[in-house]
């Protein structure tokens, strides 16, 4: 508890300031902030809300972990969209061309292929930075554009479900649809496995210790015998892999097909990125932050229905939290320096 407090305090400050700014925005646009915030809480965690929060949280947690693993090593993976979409379309392609596969094998293959494609997409910017000196931050981002474009082309021209008139693929065969266990989707179990693996790597494995030390000081890590550029490849591939699997989880859930833009418009990737930043790459924190931001998004939609305050308020709050947090952390570090 005592160890948590110093890292939690700037986050609470950031949250407070963000809420105040949000309230100011609402007052200016003539709404009642207390009512709106109340609706966010009721809408996201109330009896009608928590299921929606959970179903949004699944992809957001996936994307948060996809960012947090590289971020732990000091690398910013902005390529989440390409990795997510690449994984999603791969799962659909597997479902389309291996439609006869029996049930567990079908999903294992679809998710496995999505993982592989996601990993490759994450790997490319890493190898470009290592071998060619192209900044990973930029290349990972720019790489998403052609991947999203090619995917969109596949959906609209190659895999199109001509019957609906919408830009979407045909419904996946039943064997490729993620089963429900009562009210709970199977995707949750896949996600729990991913969360567990990431946490084990981070907290228990020597490799996780190395990743953390690399994030704190790259040169120190290399000096101590860690092959830092090889680690860059691994964490970026692992991040891409998680994003790819997440993409597969989205398309194998209802409506069991790839709808063009459906992985981009809800901004899973960017919400996840902000969650990972809020948690400062701590995987447990990233999961919590992802759930928090998902609740904020779902609650935002409820708020919009009830109070006419646009749901984008949630995105504003998220971004403001990160900006204030970055400032607060910097301020803390300077205070510490002065004392020392």
């Amino acid at each position: 508890m005592r160890a948590w407090w110093p890292s939690l305090r700037p986050m609470l400050i950031a949250l407070g300031i963000a809420l105040a700014i949000g309230a100011a925005l609402m007052l200016i646009s003539g709404s009642n902030p207390l009512q709106a915030y109340g609706q966010i809480i009721v809408g996201s965690l109330g009896p009608n809300g928590w299921a929606a929060t959970l179903s949004l949280a699944i992809p957001v947690i996936g994307c948060a972990l996809a960012v947090s693993l590289p971020l732990r090593a000091g690398l910013i993976n902005l390529g989440g969209e390409g990795q997510l979409v690449g994984g999603g379309i791969t799962a659909v392609v597997v479902g389309t061309y291996f439609a006869d596969l029996p049930f567990p094998l079908s999903l294992i293959l679809a998710i496995g292929a999505a993982a592989l494609v996601g990993a490759v997409i994450g790997f490319v910017p890493a190898i470009m930075e290592n071998k060619l000196g192209v900044p990973l931050l930029i290349s990972s981002l720019l790489l998403s554009y052609p991947i999203v474009a090619v995917t969109s082309f596949l959906v609209r021209f190659v895999l199109l479900d001509k019957g609906t008139g919408l830009p979407q693929t045909e419904t996946l065969p039943a064997a490729f649809q993620m089963p429900q266990f009562g009210k709970v989707t199977g995707a949750l179990f896949v996600l729990i496995v991913i969360i567990a693996v990431v946490i084990v790597i981070d907290r228990m494995l020597p490799a996780g210790f190395e990743i953390r030390m690399t994030g704190l000081n790259r040169k120190f890590s290399g000096y101590s015998g860690v092959a830092v550029s090889r680690m860059t490849l691994w964490v970026m591939a692992a991040g891409g892999m998680i994003a790819g699997v997440t993409g597969a989880l989205v398309v194998t859930a209802f409506p069991f097909r790839f709808v063009d833009g459906a992985l981009i418009t809800p901004a899973y990737v960017w919400t996840g990125l902000l969650a990972a930043m809020l948690a400062r790459a701590n995987p447990v924190g990233a999961v919590v932050a992802a759930v928090f931001f998902s609740a904020l998004q779902v609650g935002g939609a409820a708020m919009e229905r009830e109070t006419f305050v646009p749901r984008e308020l949630s995105s504003i709050l998220q971004a403001v939290i990160i900006i204030v947090l970055a400032g607060a952390i910097a301020l803390n570090a300077r205070k510490k320096q002065k004392v020392a």
Partner: peptide
């Protein structure tokens, strides 16, 4: 304040969208 310009920059881009 000396905050990380990359993190603030990314957050500002997302703030702008929202």
């Amino acid at each position: 304040l000396g905050a990380d310009a990359i993190i603030v920059g990314i957050a500002l881009n997302l703030l702008a969208v929202g």
